[in-house]
Amino acid sequence: MKFLAYLVSGISLGSIYAIIALGYTMVYGIAKMLNFAHGDVIMVGGYVSFLAASNLGLPPLVSVLIAMCVCTLLGIVIEALAYRPLRSAPKLAVLITAIGVSYLLQNTALLTFGANPKAYTPVVSGTLQLFDGQLSISYISLLTVACCIVIMIALTLFTAKTRMGKAMRACSEDKGAAQLMGINVNRTISLTFAIGSALAAVAGALLCSFSPTLMPTTGSMPGIKAFTAAVFGGIGSIPGAFLGGILLGVIEALAKAYISTQLSNSIVFAVLIIILLVRPAGLLGKHTQEKV
């Protein structure tokens, strides 16, 4: 029964990673850049929903919606101001800019909200008791898993069926060719950042409900782990990000429970390294042959 409890907490933590990883994998797939600022967008989402709920007294759902709107806007602005001018620049220049944006967001939050952690009120409270109270699952875990599955299905349908989704896939395949086919590449990339950032806002609210402390650095470690999850499942692949996120969460929870609390991150990273050595393109990634 204890194992089941660990498994449930792992799956719900993994669902949060998966939501972040879905955004990460889409942005990476299309812009081919490690967006280090993604984790900080999560933090911004957390703060906005926190302010909306505690200062304005709005219901949780509305506060999350406001956070999504703000983060979407933020994502589009960051892309337009910092990343678009560097579209043809070397990869490392874009990486350093992303790090700069990450520092900027963290320090702006630090100046506005201070370094003290804020106590975040969970979006939903209460727990579900199963097997005569032997297994208790919080409603927030259930909500997280449900959100994650809905988002995953919606994104899969969006990229597979809609015109914009098709444009996205075309851009991630070959930007030049996509442009020649009449696709507005800049607008498509903006849209991808918008979706990724909106997902980050959702993840921010869920993450803060899960562990209710909110600090300017809240987003950085989940951001890195979500990228790990995306790589784990095969970067650019939507089901891969989902699978990678869930697996990562479960491994982390079980490692914490049975092996060592101190080394839980190390164990997660060690599994990532092994996976990448056995399957260099990730679990569900496409392996591309190198052409001479």
């Binding site: 910092a82 001018p85 560097l86 043809s88 620049a89 070397p90 220049a93 350093i96 800019t97 790090i99 700069g100 944006v101 520092y103 900027l104 963290q106 320090n107 702006t108 630090l110 100046l111």
Partner: peptide, 22 residues
Amino acid sequence: ANYRMLIYAVVLIVVMLTTNNP
């Protein structure tokens, strides 16, 4: 004081944007 890391971040972004400006 508090603004120094903010300035650092801005310097980082501006340097990258200008040195890579076509």
